[in-house]
């Protein structure tokens, strides 16, 4: 278990689909129609509570839960019996995932909408939760396209805000609440791209650098206050964000590996982790290259 102070997992009633239900399969016929938009049969498993009970003190909140990495982290936590609050811009897209989590692991899963760029929504959302989660994880990010970000300030701003400003402010709000409570874990998914600015992705990288520095400062501030902060630098990960890129296999993690590393870091109180250890080496070499040499390389 990742949070030793937490009480026994608040297990919600076992999965539904009682014998009397009219057959757990597809609601509504889909024959030869167009693709069901909120796909067909998700409704079936949805009788485990869709909100968290207030005594669920070991809950995990994931910001960006619809990403491949976010979904993998949600699954890994559910497998440990921890209830979940999943945030996404369109939570309806998470209905099936939530059905699966409730069914397989019998945990409560609550879905809530949040556009993290809507800064004014952060505090009200946190205050509306049935319980301040034990663990809060930000997975949000936006790679964008570097040439576009270089040419269009509005696009660069969106990338900067999504990777730095918005998640940092959100976690800042969380930190204040956790500090007051005297316990909690905050995890930010940053990136190795923040370790050194490179021609190929410096708008994204600089925002991640800011995020990394913010997490580092937060960790410093909260050390000794019962709140632990983890910075995750995944390296390449095989996700939607990197679809179509030709990533070198030995350097590329699967989302499930990221999730495993995140849970391990949480349990062991690690500060900064690289998912595949080789990335620590690569980045220390890249950071060590003198600027006059670095600037002539196309990295």
């Amino acid at each position: 278990m990742s949070d030793p102070t937490a009480p026994a997992p608040a297990v919600s009633p076992p999965p539904p689909a009682p014998a009397a239900s009219p057959g757990p399969v597809s609601s509504g016929p889909v024959s030869s129609g167009p693709v069901p938009s909120g796909p067909a049969s998700a409704a079936a498993a949805a009788t485990v509570p869709a909100t968290l009970p207030a005594e669920a003190t070991n809950a995990v909140l994931i910001l960006g839960a619809a990403s491949d990495i976010g979904a993998a982290i949600a699954r890994a936590h559910a497998a440990e019996g921890r209830p979940l609050i999943l945030l996404a811009r369109q939570p309806a897209r998470l209905e099936r995932e939530a059905a699966d989590l409730r069914l397989r692991h019998g945990v409560a899963v609550q879905l809530l909408p949040l556009d993290v760029l809507d800064l004014a929504a952060h505090a009200p959302l946190l205050d509306s939760l049935p319980v301040l989660p034990a663990t809060v994880i930000s997975v949000v990010g936006l790679l964008g396209e570097q040439p576009r970000s270089a040419a269009d300030p509005a696009e660069a701003e969106r990338v900067m805000r999504t990777n730095y400003l918005a998640p940092a402010l959100f976690l800042g709000e969380v930190a204040n609440r956790m500090e007051a409570r005297g316990s909690g874990t905050i995890i930010g998914i940053s990136s190795v791209a923040g370790d050194r600015g490179r021609a190929s992705n410096y708008v994204y990288g600089s925002a991640k650098a800011g995020f990394t520095a913010f997490l580092s400062g937060l960790r410093n501030r909260l050390a000794g206050k019962g709140v632990h902060v983890v910075t995750v630098k995944p390296g390449f990960v095989d996700t939607q964000m990197t679809a179509g890129m030709n990533l070198p296999k030995p350097l590329t993690a699967q989302p499930e590996e990221v999730a495993k590393a995140v849970l391990a870091a949480e349990a062991r109180g690690r500060d900064v982790i690289y998912v595949r250890p080789v990335w620590r080496v690569i980045m220390s070499i890249i950071r060590g290259i003198p600027e006059p040499v670095f600037k002539r390389r196309n990295l």
């Binding site: 999965p15 689909a17 009682p18 014998a19 239900s21 057959g23 757990p24 399969v25 597809s26 049969s41 998700a42 079936a44 498993a45 491949d68 099936r96 995932e97 059905a99 699966d100 069914l103 397989r104």
Partner: peptide, 19 residues
């Protein structure tokens, strides 16, 4: 492989719906 959700299970009959 990323469409792998278990959608319904009926513990009385063993009927399963999954992706």
């Amino acid at each position: 492989l990323r469409s792998d959700r278990l959608l319904a299970f009926d513990p009385a009959s063993g009927r399963v719906t999954c992706e």
